[in-house]
Simulated scan of single mutants.
Amino acid sequence: MSIQIPGAKRSFLHPSSRSFVQQALFVVAGTLVLAVASKIAVPMVPVPITMQTFAVTMIGALYGWRLGSLTVLAWLGEAMMGLPVLAGTSTGLAPFVGPTAGYLIAFPLMVAMVGLLTEKGADGRRPVSAFLLHLAANVLCLALGWAWLAGVVGAQAAWIAGVAPFVIGAILKSALAAAALVAIRGRTAK
């Protein structure tokens, strides 16, 4: 059994053309990558800078929107069950109702957006469009994170603590994602 996307270009790793078992292994591998990326962090309060958003957008580009979304939802499910897969030490439901909830809500939307648009051609063949796609996904994350955090600490404080420190990181991670996709595209084209 496999998940087919009629009329769509394939994602980088072509997971939709693989068996159910192979797709399940992709999901497990993706959740492990997300957990490791979450632990690569610069501690800040109330939201740390991590490589989570880089991993989320790359999974969307590499897996496609369906399997990528399933992977991110599985990872968030692991977090809800208490596994230490998110940044920091919070586990269980606390991160989903605390200051970081808006960012967590954004992750499935980010992966779906990047996956779908990568399948439509915004990939390593066009580095600028890949960069802009990943940057747009990061902006979506920051916007939803800001909106949630603004409800907790106020709009200005949310901007200062939850958006401004992350803008340069979002740009750098988007550039890194575009460069990685160009490299992957080059290797898979050979």
Rank of each mutant, 00 (worst) to 15 (best):
G98K: 08
M1W: 13
A130S: 12
M1K: 12
M51N: 10
Y63S: 01
I168A: 15
A158T: 05
M113S: 05
T100D: 07
F131D: 06
L149R: 05
L132H: 12
A161Q: 14
L109W: 00
C141N: 07
V27W: 00
G124Y: 13
Q52M: 11
S129N: 11
L172R: 15
R125E: 15
M80H: 01
I105E: 01
G64E: 01
L135Y: 13
V36I: 15
V153K: 09
R185M: 10
M110H: 04
Q52L: 12
R126W: 12
G115C: 08
K173S: 09
Q4W: 11
K9W: 11
G77W: 08
L132C: 13
F166Y: 05
G77Y: 12
A150K: 06
T188V: 15
S16Q: 14
G98T: 11
V114E: 04
S69G: 15
A158H: 08
G77F: 10
A183K: 13
G124M: 12
F26R: 01
A122Q: 09
V114R: 09
P108D: 07
I40M: 14
A61C: 04
A150L: 03
L181K: 03
F131T: 05
Q23K: 04
I59A: 01
V139P: 03
T57M: 14
A180V: 12
G77P: 06
L142P: 03
V139T: 09
G98R: 10
V128F: 13
M1A: 15
A37G: 07
K39S: 04
L181H: 05
W146M: 04
V47K: 01
L32Y: 05
G82H: 11
S69P: 03
F131I: 09
I3G: 07
M81I: 10
A29N: 10
L142G: 10
L83P: 05
V47R: 01
R185C: 11
L142N: 08
L67E: 00
L93T: 11
L32S: 08
L32K: 07
R185V: 05
A55V: 06
P165I: 03
R18D: 09
Q4P: 10
A143D: 07
A178V: 08
I160V: 14
L93G: 06
F166R: 02
C141P: 00
L172T: 15
L149E: 10
V163Y: 06
G121P: 10
C141L: 14
L132A: 13
M51C: 14
L34I: 03
L76P: 00
L104C: 09
V152F: 05
A136C: 14
R185I: 04
R185L: 07
G102M: 03
G7D: 11
L83A: 12
G88A: 13
F107K: 03
G154W: 08
A74G: 02
V27C: 01
W65F: 11
A61V: 04
T100W: 09
V85C: 05
A122H: 13
V163F: 06
L132F: 15
A35E: 02
V152W: 06
